[in-house]
Design a protein around this nucleic acid. Structure first.
Lengths: 198, 198
DNA sequence: TACAAAACAGACCGGTCGGTATTTTGTGCG
DNA sequence: CGCACAAAATACCGACCGGTCTGTTTTGTA
């Protein structure tokens, strides 16, 4: 009674997540999802009320997946800068380079597509970005307060800059499939953080 | 004989460019273009054979516009690092921040959307990126050879990193409309280049 | 084993997609 | 002015869009 329905629901979410990632939201049709799941319309619309509801569930799932990868082994690192670099390496090497989503970074692709289209959906993604930026900023601030970084470092600014760089790298990697892009970004961000040290 | 037809053709290109930029390629319909230009289908398809042909023309035009903005007052700067910073400021402040295209950076938005969809179109954009990256790399190399930058600087790597950063900034700005994003990127890239000096 | 509810199938809706063939209108030149 | 041709309008095509509806099958359980 419980199991079957929830399992199918989960299959819809996983399939849609991949499709949205590769084809984009608008360019993924309900038919695409039906084909990928083997369901028919009646079956699918028994689980979700609309295409947008499917997207909401897929977004939620993608956040879970991303968090599981990026923060693996990071939180227990006491040195804040090493913690940041570890998370960045996780993100670029395992999340982006690991091709968890075939289309690249799910959040970024969706943000680009939905900006100017669906304020609600775009805002939701942007909220996730802000949360991550805030976390990074708090880690940088921690490094600054403990004297690892120079006192004049603007933690908010550096956090945004890191976010900017890893997202740019995600797209250029997805488009070019050149792994060097990811390593270059890790390397240069390492240099950048070194510059900010005392 | 010349004027009327070519003028209409140009109007189609300009309108499509804005629409593609804001709504994306696939999510922009021929009807959208018709509405923006005041034409009907017959009128439009007299100028272009397909939607993709319109995109080609729009892309070509967008390159013209971008080049006009980014390189304004840059080429005549003899100091290579100042030249780079000037071009970056042009790009972020005048091209992105100037909202030349309402949807943000045309190239980047298109690259994200078309990756995995149209290899031909994605490759064309990527070619443009490579060309810009090569130009930046040559400027950085110039700085390295004249002793402005350290000898161990990898010009190719730094060029790719800069490209990565300004593109990440473009999207985050388009989505959030927070001008600080652009200034942060300029500032941090300035710091980064300073780090690489002797 | 009977039965209700959950899960699914498939036809169907109005509307829109990109694209085409044909006809009408407008424009510039001799 | 009138003619030739470019430019634009009209009507239409089959395919597909997201979503609804009704009917059938499967499932868990009492």
């Amino acid at each position: 009674m419980f199991t079957k329905g929830l399992r199918t629901r989960q299959e819809i979410i996983e399939a849609s997540l991949q499709l949205f990632s590769v084809k984009g939201y608008y360019n993924t049709s309900i038919s695409d999802i039906l084909q990928a799941t083997g369901l028919t319309k009646g079956g699918l619309y028994g689980h979700f009320g609309s295409k947008e509801e499917i997207w909401d569930a897929a977004y939620e799932r993608s956040v879970q997946i991303w968090q599981g990868i990026v923060f693996e082994g990071a939180r227990e690192i006491s040195h804040p800068i090493e913690r940041i670099m570890h998370a960045l390496e996780n993100d670029l090497r395992n999340y982006i380079g690991g091709e968890v989503f075939r289309g690249g970074c799910f959040f970024f692709n969706m943000l680009v597509e939905l900006t100017g289209q669906s304020e609600r959906m775009a805002r939701r993604i942007l909220g996730g970005y802000r949360a991550f930026s805030n976390l990074l900023a708090s880690w940088i601030e921690e490094a600054r307060e403990t004297g690892i970084l120079r006192a004049d470092v603007d933690s908010r600014e550096v956090a945004d800059f890191i976010l900017t760089a890893i997202n740019g790298a995600a797209v250029l990697y997805a488009a070019s499939r050149e792994p060097t892009i990811l390593e270059v970004t890790i390397h240069q961000l390492g240099i950048h953080l070194d510059c900010l040290k005392c």
